[in-house]
Design a protein around this nucleic acid. Structure first.
Lengths: 259, 259
DNA sequence: ATTGACAATATGTCCGGACATAAATATCAA
DNA sequence: TTGATATTTATGTCCGGACATATTGTCAAT
């Protein structure tokens, strides 16, 4: 079975948000890693050199590296320096998505094909699934998640529910992964994400979904529900992704050595 | 359906490991929260007061609070101070289990009943499941996970595979949750955990497991495989837990607001 | 009573420096 | 060649201070 690691991408923030110095350093280093300037297994310049390079204090440089460490991009040892980690082993889900620049994405070869966009009103069953009040209206975008291989069966089905107030985004929504929608909402409407909560469950595939996913009805599948909450604790976007069990493993790194 | 949040407990380190100052402060504050000295919703003393109280610099106090923040125990706002968070909403799985003192546990009412202890040799199928080489020998401890309610069906089944070298722990193993076994190994054998990796999958219940869990064969279930790796990347403990889909949701907090 | 301006405050960011510590390397002795 | 020992080095921890910024609370004006 193919195992898909959820990957992290360091995102260039829009001009609308000011960036702190250490975040700037962190992003620059992350881009250096992504671009291959710092290959996997190589060592980052030592802290003091980074200090002179960025004209920053050691404290700032350390805060930046700490960010990368939290993302699992680098590991550190006392005398050995800061090592760039292997992506395939470190691109697991990191918890401390500290800043808005962090993006969670599927593999590089991944494609997303929008199947349907329409308005829905939450009924009793959906309300329990989404964890919101019944009767609420949403704009729902349904899409298939495909691997690079055209012949391979789809790896998942995603329903994204967003507040109808943001329906103006309808045109651009199809082109972006759902996580980006939050950035769009944040940029255009100023509604900030205060918290992202995620539930992972098992379920049996419905006949309809099984048909869409080219799988057997009743087959076990993974359901990942992600809720984007604002400061009031209200969800303004909810995404539900369903992966047939034989095509997806949700992998994460719970702890990595400090040093 | 009942939703079980994986909980975090701040663990008092053994005498064998030296504690840094900021970790000491963090632990003290965490114990204050756990004991109710700092009730949920209350505010922690402000940084400068903590500085005088612990006779530490503000930098150190901030490092301690940052630890608590990473664990989801507190949230901070610029003028509003540091707030103790509601356990039920913050005890979700945190990724940045920064130090050995962190423990991951199931709910308070949870019980664990050992069903079977015995030696196994890894065959082809199990090797693929565990992600280790076939032919390797393990000591396997199988146990049921029960909720407080005696009548309720079990919420899961756990197989813990540990290196036969640690078979001397056999007597005490039954009494501790599997995560503690690592601490025992670490304390007695000095083998350090360098990394914990976790995979979450869906699967259909086998007839045997279904019988043990009082569920239907073929019913969807969640499988959580956790690997404890040493510095060489070799797993010295692997735990496999299976939860029927209707009795377990794996909930986690991906991001919480910085401020 | 609502709104606006202003000051107070607690956290956020950043700087400089100092010493401790673990691990890689070099050195020397057996 | 092996083994123990000393040195070097890059990160870990901790201190002190300074200014920025967001939020709250207060008070005055409409």
């Amino acid at each position: 079975m193919v195992c898909y690691h959820a990957a992290l991408i360091y995102w260039e923030p829009g001009a609308f948000m000011s960036e702190t110095f250490y975040a700037r350093v962190a992003r620059d280093l992350a881009e250096g890693i992504a671009s291959g300037r710092f290959p996997v297994g190589s060592r980052l310049p030592r802290e003091l050199d980074l200090c002179t390079q960025y004209e920053a204090s050691r404290h700032t440089v350390r805060a930046a590296i700490q960010e990368l460490q939290g993302l699992g991009l680098v590991s550190r040892k006392k005398r050995a320096g800061t090592r760039v980690e292997n992506s395939s082993s470190t691109r697991g889900y990191r918890q401390s998505l500290a800043s808005v620049e962090d993006l969670v994405q599927f593999g590089a070869a991944h494609r997303r094909v929008v199947q349907n966009i329409g308005d829905v009103v939450v009924d009793r069953g959906l309300a329990r699934q989404l964890g919101c009040a019944a009767g609420r209206a949403f704009l729902r975008i349904s899409s298939l998640r495909l691997n690079g291989d055209a012949d391979a069966p789809p790896i998942g089905w995603t329903d994204v529910y967003i507040d109808p107030a943001y329906a103006q985004l309808r045109d651009v929504i199809g082109e972006y992964p759902e996580v980006l929608i939050n950035d769009l909402i944040e940029a255009r409407y100023g509604r900030r994400i205060a918290e992202i909560r995620q539930d992972v469950q098992a379920l049996a595939l419905s006949a309809k979904l099984a048909r869409a996913l080219n799988a057997k009805a009743g087959a076990p599948a993974l359901r990942i529900i992600r809720r984007y909450l604002d400061q009031a604790g209200e969800a303004f976007e909810i995404s539900v992704t369903i992966h047939p069990a034989d095509r997806f493993t949700f992998s994460m790194c719970l702890r990595r050595e400090r040093g």
